[in-house]
């Protein structure tokens, strides 16, 4: 596979200059493990589920989101995300573009106690909600930088974290351009959206998609021509967040405003 070759090359480019005597010795230790993993990656043990047949993504129909925060609530319930309002696997942003073209953004449900930025309706030019979550990038910077191989892309297109391996260096949190990762205060490891991997492999929808009352979130399989996501991609003009960073996100927005970052 091309991706593998590229990974190998990338590895080599980084490896050779850093190598030296000790490097070569350590390579003898590390390389067989890395090579073995590339050949046959893990198969989840769910009967009848073959990850090679799927490739997941999510669509967001911006015009349908009513900012009710049911998705955030459901995500916290389903995934043991801390209830405190500082940790999110998914969240909803509210944008208000004012008549002077200045932009006021806030996270729905994350209110400052002392100061509220209330925009007078007369000053509003346009306004909308933007659900955000991990983009499960096809070229994920977080996976690239993890020093201990504790986060990876599954064959079916989810970026997961191995919380038994993560050393908590938080380089992945720094490398994510979308702020999708946080350090879980209880496990003390990096945590993020998994596309509800434990539900998806059983044929269920991610919790946020399940509860969305207006179906602003569309989950689906990019490998299946009959999936709702592929239909969504066919019927809409699609944009992704920060395409210039070449992360190749798999969360697709329709009707995305240029002010959204």
């Amino acid at each position: 596979m091309d991706q593998d070759k590229r990974d190998l090359l990338k590895g080599l480019i980084l490896f050779i200059p850093a190598g030296g005597v000790i490097g070569a010795l350590a390579k003898a230790v590390a390389a067989p493990a890395a090579a073995a993993g590339k050949e046959a990656s893990a198969r989840p043990e769910t009967p009848g589920y073959d990850p090679t047949n799927h490739y997941y993504g999510m669509g967001i129909e911006v015009g349908k989101c009513i900012g009710c925060n049911r998705c955030v609530e459901a995500c916290k319930q389903e995934n043991d995300v801390p209830r405190e309002p500082f940790f999110f696997r998914t969240w909803v942003e509210r944008y208000v573009i004012k008549k002077d073209r200045s932009v006021v953004v806030e996270t729905v449900g994350l209110k400052k106690e002392k100061r509220k930025e209330v925009v007078d309706q007369e000053d509003t030019l346009r306004s909308f909600f933007i659900p955000k979550l991990c983009n499960h990038c096809a070229n994920p910077p977080c996976v690239q930088v993890c020093p201990v191989d504790a986060t990876w892309s599954t064959e079916d297109g989810a970026v997961l974290v191995d919380k038994n391996r993560c050393i908590g260096c938080r380089y992945c949190i720094q490398a994510c351009p979308y702020g999708a990762r946080y350090l879980h205060p209880e496990t003390r490891t990096a945590d993020k959206c998994t596309f509800c991997y434990h539900r998806v492999v059983k044929g269920l929808l991610p919790a946020c998609v399940e509860v969305c009352p207006t179906q602003a979130r569309i989950f689906g399989d990019l490998k299946s021509q009959a999936s709702r996501l592929v239909r969504f991609e066919r019927m809409n003009k699609i944009h992704v967040l920060k395409p210039d960073l070449n992360t190749q996100p798999k969360v697709y927005y329709s009707g995305l405003d240029g002010e959204v970052r």
């Binding site: 990338k10 850093a18 930088v145 020093p147 201990v148 260096c169």
Partner: peptide, 28 residues
């Protein structure tokens, strides 16, 4: 955040990670 797992950086360095080169650079 998980200081006891630091040995992993020497044991299973992720070859695409610049930070994983720490072990090699430092030891060298």
């Amino acid at each position: 955040a998980q200081p006891l797992r630091a040995y992993e950086i020497f044991l299973t360095p992720n070859l695409t990670s610049d930070m994983a080169m720490f072990g090699f650079v430092y030891a060298w």
